[in-house]
Design a protein around this nucleic acid. Sequence first.
DNA 1: CGGTGTCTTGAATACCATCAAGTCTTGTGG
DNA 2: CCACAAGACTTGATGGTATTCAAGACACCG
Lengths: 255, 255
Amino acid sequence: MAAKSKIHRASDPTPTQQICCPCPAYTLNICQPALAAYGSKQATAGLQVRQVARSAMARRLVCQQQELRDAVPVICDGWAACYINLPNGGRQILSIVLPGELVSTALVFETIQNWFIEAITDVQYRTFKRSDLLEVLFKRPEALECISRAWVEERKHADQLILDLGCRLAEERIPRLIVQLVKRLKALGLSDTDGKRFPFPLRHHHIADATGLTPVHVSKVLSELRRRNILALSDRFLVILDPIALYHAAGEKWP
Amino acid sequence: MAAKSKIHRASDPTPTQQICCPCPAYTLNICQPALAAYGSKQATAGLQVRQVARSAMARRLVCQQQELRDAVPVICDGWAACYINLPNGGRQILSIVLPGELVSTALVFETIQNWFIEAITDVQYRTFKRSDLLEVLFKRPEALECISRAWVEERKHADQLILDLGCRLAEERIPRLIVQLVKRLKALGLSDTDGKRFPFPLRHHHIADATGLTPVHVSKVLSELRRRNILALSDRFLVILDPIALYHAAGEKWP
DNA sequence: CGGTGTCTTGAATACCATCAAGTCTTGTGG
DNA sequence: CCACAAGACTTGATGGTATTCAAGACACCG
């Protein structure tokens, strides 16, 4: 976890050589093509991808609303949540952003009003200049290919969330959220060696806002999952005791 | 509406000159750049955008699952619904597709498993060859600009749906669906001259599947809206009697 | 003309929210 | 280091929203 590591309040530019070294999904997001452009073609093709390393403490915003106007954030370390607010005080989490993930491909193209990105743990992130990314995108086909893949993935995740919120009960939504996160954590290599123990910094209110439920009801559903010895959840770590039952509760087959 | 017009069962190739003439949002989707490429550069740049005009009767699929493998559909006339199924028989409508709209920007890049596109009315549509569109996209910056705009719009619509399903009551979800459709119909020039009467071919079960409710409850909510003289709904046409109250029920301000 | 699909309405029930009280943890300042 | 405040979690009681079940009216189509 990023918690307890030193916190940088102000911007903290980093030499190109160190860019994205700790980023587990370097090849999956925009960083690689963008930075390949920076490394190999800067002089010859005039492509320059400016980026700034920053950090945010848990429970604070990753970018201020103002900054998102021309900054495209990528989470390098820690967990974040992308959400929108309702006038009445409610909020809906659109996605949990894990280390190494671009917050959204849509942000590469345009500012999106009313989006907020909250640091769940302490977060290290980088902001790219949108105009730089767009230039890379228009000039380097591999960057477009890369981002289009992320784009399709993002669409699929949104579809699943819509399906879950529209059609599923609480007792399936919460296991589904957990299973989805577990799969992504495994893919990022962030699981324990045996693949049953995971960092899990989400508070009940995060799960509630992500699944369209209340924290009270989240507590009840999780208690039931614990009572059935399906999982254990303590100290910000999740242990899956009965993966078959968990996947079954999520309406999926254990691989 | 497209209803009652002649139906072509088989594919029906059309000369380039006639392409997209009846399409009210020609400039908003991929057609224009794709076809500009076809018209102006075919010989010189080797770009060829093949497309096929097709049609589907109401209540049938717009593309068979097989066809979506390398066909990208655009709705030229009529209404369609893009949805996914649950194993248990439930389904969730992800978006209502109006005349002149690309079904989804994601389909330009990749097949998406388990997506279905149902014709709500009789529908005239065209399928582009994905490889052709991708070639245009990589070679012509204005095509990329155009589709990225559509992508951001699509993302915003998905966000709103997620927010509605996660946070709002039935009595707001249904007015919101109606308001959203009314806005889009106006933008497409498909409203009555006074802007209060609209074609509205959705069945209660469409509204139910789009809002995560049951047809029974949709009927109750709509009855209440009628009882309050907010709208009238008959013969597949919607008349807005009290726009201020409708927008208010949808949690928005009447412009 | 029956069959199918659509819409309506009421009654009973399931799911989840809200309210409330209490425990425990975490963070902060004295 | 301790005291206190704020946040996080749990559990039970109560109520509201939406589903399910059921029955009947109506329109459309072959």
